[in-house]
């Protein structure tokens, strides 16, 4: 039997091993990349264009899909209906299915033979191999993070506050924007960051929809396939640094917002 006094020590050791499992490969990658290589990679226009493309496509698709995802989350948080569990399950589907399969599904949806593809073709657009296609693939696999976080946020807003606002003469839409949304904002912002971050890292779905223009995860894969680990590693390190910087900035912003609300 475990001695009571040993429990914190054993838990710390087990937890430490898990942390090491996460940190060691990343640290190894950083250690194996020299500053010189990193600067050289940062001056490579293919790499910088790819990182820029990945950032803006993920950002824009996150914001675009938020327009529909946030109202959907509110609806799911406030309504009770028979098929609610089924809808919640559907929302989680992109997380559980293989991302290559998600890519195939998206490709079928936007290819020239599909209704959407035909409509796009009629105005001279082809989503396959286009940033729009990339954005759709990114959003498909990452939108559950936003919907689930926003739904949790709206559920955490006391219904009584909304009822009070209605009683004070506010219309339902004003109640949403002046009470529900600001109070759930912390969760929503967290969901937006998670969706954005998940979009940045997407590979499986995007490679099927658009090999070109090349987002960074595909560029890393391509460099690895064509030139080997030595050439792929600096791109990966640079991309991780950029992602970390974005992540830290956005998280800091969330915390500032929280402390102002406290």
């Amino acid at each position: 039997m475990l001695k009571k006094n040993n429990v914190p020590l054993i838990f710390s050791l087990l937890g430490g091993l898990i942390l090491l499992f996460i940190l060691a490969p990343l640290a190894g990658m950083f250690v194996s990349t020299s500053t010189e290589q990193l600067f050289e990679t940062a001056q490579d226009s293919d790499v910088t264009e790819s990182i820029f493309l990945t950032l803006w496509v993920s950002g824009v698709s996150t914001l675009f899909f938020a327009i529909g995802a946030i109202p959907l989350s509110y609806f799911l948080a406030r309504s009770n209906f028979k098929l609610k569990k089924l809808i919640n399950g559907i929302i989680d589907l992109p997380v559980v299915i293989p991302h290559s399969a998600a890519g195939i599904a998206i490709l079928g949806f936007i290819s020239r033979d599909s209704v959407v593809g035909k409509a796009a073709s009629s105005v001279g657009l082809n989503f396959v191999g286009h940033p729009v296609g990339i954005g759709l693939a990114m959003a498909f696999v990452s939108i559950p993070f936003l919907i689930n976080a926003a739904r949790d946020g709206f559920e955490a807003v006391p219904v009584k506050l909304e009822k009070t606002a209605l009683n004070l003469g506010a219309s339902p839409i004003r109640v949403f924007f002046s009470v529900s949304l600001p109070l759930a904002w912390r969760y929503i912002l967290s969901g937006l960051i998670m969706m954005f971050a998940r979009g940045l890292s997407e590979f499986g779905a995007v490679i099927i929809v658009a090999y070109h223009p090349m987002i960074t995860p595909i560029l890393i894969y391509e460099r690895f396939g064509s030139f080997g680990l030595k050439y792929a590693r600096p791109v990966a390190v640079l991309f991780i640094i950029v992602c970390l910087v974005f992540f830290v900035i956005l998280r800091t912003f969330t915390k500032e917002k929280n402390s102002r609300n406290a």
């Binding site: 009584k160 506050l161 009070t164 209605l166 009683n167 004070l168 003469g169 506010a170 219309s171 609300n261």
Partner: peptide, 18 residues
């Protein structure tokens, strides 16, 4: 609700915390 001219004050006050 918003057109009734009846005001309700809840037991826990329901002030908007933000």
């Amino acid at each position: 609700i918003q057109h009734r001219k009846i005001g309700i004050v809840f037991q826990d006050f329901a002030l908007f915390p933000h």
